[in-house]
Design a protein around this nucleic acid. Structure first.
Lengths: 185, 185
DNA sequence: TTATTTAGTATCGATTCGATACCAAATAGG
DNA sequence: CCTATTTGGTATCGAATCGATACTAAATAA
């Protein structure tokens, strides 16, 4: 088994995931990219739920993603909330309807049941995570990973604190995706 | 580690792969879907290199994919060859230029080097393959897997034979993707 | 105070994509 | 053999994505 083979299998899994995402979105009149954006917004933290962050995460321009976000807002799947401090910034909060939709989408995927019986799921997860990490370090993009693997995340007896914003983070917070994430060097 | 976590990592890897595919294609003025189609055509066998098969593989309609194929042909990345037996059928053969482009695309991906140092690559491949197989069996689409895992593939001392077409298959052939593929029950 | 940068939106043209209609060839049913 | 029906592919239309560019407003730097 070579790395080429792993690459091929991963690519095929990607295609299938995309087909399922497309098929699910079609039931609600949503495009794959809109599904992706909404999914991201249910998984990211409060520093990362802006149009710019969505654009970077998906590798598209902010102009492009702005239109998709407008559609999601019109459908009542997310709300735009102006930032208190920086008046240029808009925060994108999925509505209950939006969250429910993504929940259903994840449950609909064939992947979860396919994995359910796998005895080696722990190993699989760790190898995939280290692979993801290497890919993220190699291409020069931002990592967009969760705070608990971030070098700015500080852990003390009082709890977690982000070293960039110096704000306290809950144990839920550190599981969320952050656009400022950097791996320890 | 839960299956949800594996799902998330896989989804993120997919996003990154797609971003890289998009970025690479952009250098040649190709859309992601065109890259996907051309990649498929370099990996499929002689029964599966038709517009209809590409459409099924990518989960799009034949009308949609027909336009993408026209672009690829105009760019000199593939040639259309009418079928000898069935005059309705067209076979799509990547040109040398097209093959080279896909080779470069695969080499450009960060995934291969990210996997290169992994000691558990054999395990990873086998778990991923069984996952892929389960996903393929669960959603009702065609599998589009290689002949060597197909129930129609017959192996004797004379070599391989496809049980559907009764044509002999080389050892290269049975590594290629086939649209008629079915797993053993 | 002024220049530059940054976040977001608006708009245009090219392209994707689904739906539909259409043509030609193969197949089925009688 | 003759007429449906099915199948593979293409063409066309409208809606949507997407990149590029230009623009506004607010924050930051000089």
């Amino acid at each position: 088994m070579s790395d080429i083979e792993v690459n091929d299998v991963l690519e095929r899994l990607c295609n299938l995931l995309r087909m399922e995402t497309r098929a699910f979105g079609q039931k609600y009149g949503l495009q794959p990219v809109q599904m992706d954006a909404l999914t991201y917004l249910t998984q990211c933290n409060r520093y990362s739920n802006t149009p710019q962050a969505v654009a970077e995460y998906l590798g598209l321009t902010k102009g492009t993603i702005s239109q998709s976000l407008k559609v999601l807002e019109q459908r009542g799947l997310l709300r735009k909330q102006p930032d208190k401090q920086d008046k240029r910034v808009v925060h994108l909060a999925p509505t209950a309807k939006g969250k429910k939709l993504i929940e259903n989408a994840i449950a609909d995927k064939s992947l979860a049941p396919a994995l359910a019986n796998s005895t080696k799921i722990t190993e699989l997860a760790s190898v995939l995570q280290s692979t993801l990490r290497k890919v993220q370090q190699m291409n020069k993009r931002k990592a967009f990973a969760a705070c608990h693997t971030c070098r700015f995340n500080e852990h003390s007896k009082k709890g977690y604190v982000c070293g960039l914003t110096h704000e306290p983070l809950s144990s839920q917070d550190i599981q969320l995706i952050c656009r400022e994430h950097e791996y320890p060097s």
